[in-house]
Nucleic acid binder design. Structure first.
Lengths: 334, 334
DNA sequence: TTGAAAGCGCTAACAG
DNA sequence: CTGTTAGCGCTTTCAA
């Protein structure tokens, strides 16, 4: 038995509209006395706004819908959703996600979502990639998170991969490292961009970026967790020649984990012999490695927050691709 | 400009109610011809049900609300929410979570949630613990996930910790291990229960459970990721005496990761010299360790699915505590 | 400063 | 087999 504005109105001996005005501070003006009294009664009766009813007039529910491209199964989801949530909360909005998986199409997920009449819709990808959104949804989807809309029809928020690689490489150079090898993740958009930043930093630092060592972490064209790892053999190889590296940059924290094990096998110590750095900041891994891993944290939360801001902005800004900076997390591996 | 039943009714030259019946197969009967024609028009116009409007009559939205006790920040969230989602989808329900964090109370989160008029509400914890739910919410919250309501006022779904430890210990014994040390996580409910299962399995196997070695992973009363790790020194100690263990059971995968590193330092190989096994199955870690880690997977998805089932059941079953079994994931560390 | 009434989209009860 | 109508809870427009 839920209670409504009507119940309060009856109890207070005023009209429903007065109650509505008193509680939600709308245009309606009334004596402070009345307003206070109504609020007390509402409190006492345990009144809770009915958003569904409100939405009948407004046309929308205070919800931000997220089309989660496989995202919900990923630990990275938490950052994006969390950021979105904290950005939305300020405007009294809630976030709800629907997974786009298997054979479901964007159209079908959007339709399902639309039944709830969300105020705004975002599309979020599990890893940085290009996504082609059918033209008819360009209006509906307000922002792409962690992915770039292939035809730039929608504002996209993506991690600044090249910038992160540049920053981390500079950090290694500043730490006195002179021979940095990069074990990258093959076949990913992020990897391509990071490689550019890596080589650029070397060039700027007076080294030959084009000549730098960049090796694939796995023996497949595209990195995946299940692919056969090449990390051990690469590290062994790298450490067996006179020109051994004094730093290894890793495509992600899991690769770094393997590099740790491989270096240990070679008898090399971290960071004295070889510094190790990486991308992601999967906290459970990075902080638990010995020594704790220095890594560029993916800006998942920041992208989420920014997305909320864009979605809830008064006026629709022009479409653009926004690169969101990583955050350097200094631990002890450099 | 969204289109409504009314628009379809006009276009089809029938009443709204007929359209409603045609689309949602309600009690209304009509010629197959009419029904088909209406459906076609709806399709053509791009009609999408308005749940908010429907809820005005039903009294609830087809939503399952989840009070997420810090959960959303955890990678474990994904299993629980994912399971809930897949369980709910069958009934055309969506799941939405609200985080209970910082200074927010259950009451305040429930109130926020209630504004959306969810059909059912679950409470989910990040790690297995006891939760005292104020009595007045016992009716509102339909099920507790990954936690036990302190006064058994609400049906609770918890991982079968003791059973999991028993199973894993038996697995080690069956693999021929005779001297199993257990590096446990101090101060957690899960740990207490697992220790019981561990000792029980040893007793049943003809070993002296009461005498078995159980060591704390960190030097604090309660395990946390930030506490100072004791794993290295424990392993060194264990391996330096004549009665070295031939298996180490770990409180979680991160501890196992440290055990791997420590064993490697001691020159011991896994699993030949020492088998390693653990709890959690954090896939990114467990599958990436070398050798891949054999571990008991927490039943997060299963709890989520079961929760959906309980919440959406026709009639409310009597309150109980349901222990959900872990799943043994065999890899190569045993 | 407050009230009355309309209407949002839908379903259920009742008529035809 | 189909139509009409009322009403869910709220906000907004118009009237007092």
């Amino acid at each position: 038995m839920t209670i409504s504005l009507n119940d309060i109105a009856e109890r207070a001996g005023v009209s429903v509209k007065t109650v509505s005005g008193a509680l939600h501070g709308g245009s309606a003006r009334m004596s402070d006395d009345t307003r206070l009294r109504i609020r007390e009664i509402a409190e006492e009766l345990g009144y809770v706004t009915n958003f569904a009813a409100r939405s009948m007039r407004q046309g929308w529910m205070p919800l931000i819908g997220v089309i989660a491209d496989e995202l919900v199964t990923s630990p990275f989801a938490t950052g994006i959703i969390g950021g979105l949530d904290s950005g939305a909360r300020a405007s009294d909005m809630a976030v709800f996600a629907m997974t786009l998986s298997g054979r479901r199409t964007v159209a079908s997920v959007l339709e399902e979502m639309h039944r709830f009449r969300p105020r705004a819709v975002a599309y979020a990808a599990m890893y940085h990639k290009r996504v082609e959104l059918p033209a008819e949804f360009a209006e509906t989807v307000g922002v792409m998170i962690n992915c770039r809309e292939a035809n730039d029809r929608v504002t996209s928020l993506v991690p600044d991969e090249a910038g992160a690689a540049l920053e981390m490489t500079n950090y290694l150079l500043n730490a006195g490292r002179r021979n940095i090898a990069y074990i990258n993740l093959p076949g990913l958009l992020a990897s391509e961009l990071r490689e550019i930043g890596f080589r650029q930093a070397l060039d700027q630092g007076g080294f030959n970026g084009a000549n730098a060592t960049v090796l694939p972490a796995v023996n497949r064209a595209i990195y995946s967790d299940r692919a056969q790892s090449l990390v051990h053999s690469h590290v062994q190889q790298l450490m067996s020649v006179p020109q051994r590296p004094d730093a290894i940059l890793c495509g992600n924290d899991r690769v770094a984990m393997e590099v740790y094990a491989a270096l240990r096998r070679c008898g090399a110590t971290i960071p004295d012999d070889v510094a190790v750095a990486s991308f992601d900041n999967q906290v459970e891994i990075a902080s638990r490695l010995d020594p704790p891993l220095t890594t560029m944290a993916l800006p998942h939360r920041a992208m989420g927050r920014k997305a909320a801001q864009i979605l809830l902005a008064e006026d629709r800004a022009p479409v653009e691709v926004k690169k969101i900076p990583f955050r350097l997390v200094e631990r002890l591996s450099v």
